[in-house]
Amino acid sequence: MTTMLEAKGLGKTFATTLPKAGRLKAVRTLFSRDRKIVTAVNALDMHIEQGEFVGFIGPNGAGKSTTIKMLCGILHPSAGEVRICGLSPQRDRRRVARRIGVVFGQRSQLWWDLPLKDSFDILAAMFRLEAAAKERQLAKLEEVLQLRDFWDTPVRRLSLGQRMRGDLAAALLHDPELLVLDEPTIGMDAAAKRQIRDHLRLLNDQFGKTVLLTTHDMDDIETLCKRVIVISRGELLYDGGLEKLRERIGLPTTVRVTYAGDTALAPGMRIGDGLTAASEEICVESALGREAAVSFNRERIGVMEVLRLLSAWGDIADVHVEEPEFEEIVSRIY
C-alpha cells in the first residue's frame, strides 16, 4: 500500500482584523490593531492510503473546509504540514494540482455560460492533455457519469445533479489519483443523491480512485465510506471504521408523546420499571403539560418497549419518533 495523503500536526489560525466602517474603511482596516485570533484547525493528523474511501465529517464550523483547503494547497497551514503523494501542496501547488481532483459542491469550476464540452476542452489544455488522451479519459468517464445527453447545454442551464456530474468529470479529466469532494450532494433531491453516490462508488471500486469526502448527509457516509474521520472544533475526535463509530454511538432516538391529560413526568427522570437494566437508560428530556420527550438508545431497547413504559404514566394520544442529526449525535457523544 502506498500513502496517498499525510497530514501531521496540521493547524490553522485566522487573525481577523475587525473591519472598520465608514470612510476609507479599507485603509483604516489595514492599519487597525483590533484583531481576533480564531483557531479553525488544531494539531490534526491524517493518513490515507491509496484506494481508501474516507468520510470526513463534523458539525458546521468544525474546520472541515479549512482542512480540505489546506490539503489542496488553497490555504497555507499555520502549523504542521501536508504531503500528497509525497509533495507539499503549498510548495508544489501546481504539481499537486495535477494529482488531485477537487470538487466543491457549492461552487462549480465549469464555465458557466458555455456548453459543458467547452469546459473539458479548456481543462484539457490547462492540464496539457493530448487530444487522444482527453478523448480516452472522457470515454472512460462517460461510462460512469453519462454526460453525452447534456454535452452541448450551457452549464448554467444544467440541473444540480447534471452539473455535479459535469464537475466530477472536470475534476477527473486529468486522471488524478486522489479525489477530494466537499459536500458533493448538497441541495440535491433523493434520486440525484443516489445517482451521484453510485457514480462515486464506481469511481472508487473500478477506477481505484482514493476518495476523501466531506458531507452532512449520513446516508452518503453509510453507503460509501468504510472509514470515517470525525472532527469538532478543529480537533480530531474519531478516526476509524464506520462500524466501530456506530457501536460507540448506538442509535440514539427521541420519542415525543402527547398524553390525553397532564403528565407527572419531569425532565431528568428515568422511567424504568426495574425489570430490565436497559429501561433505566430512558431519560426524560423535557416534559410540559401533556407533552413529554424521552431519549434512549434504540440498540438496547425497542421503541415498543419504551412506549409500553411510557403508557404507565397516562393514556398516550400521539407519538412521534425522531432520529437526531448525525452531527448532533457526534458532538453530544464527545
Binding site: R93, R94, R95, A97, V102, R107, Q109, M126, F127, H174
Partner: peptide, 14 residues
Amino acid sequence: NGQLDQLLLRPMPL
C-alpha cells in the same frame, strides 16, 4: 466570494 479557490486548483502560475 472565494473565487480564488478554484484558480488555486489549476496547474498554472496563480
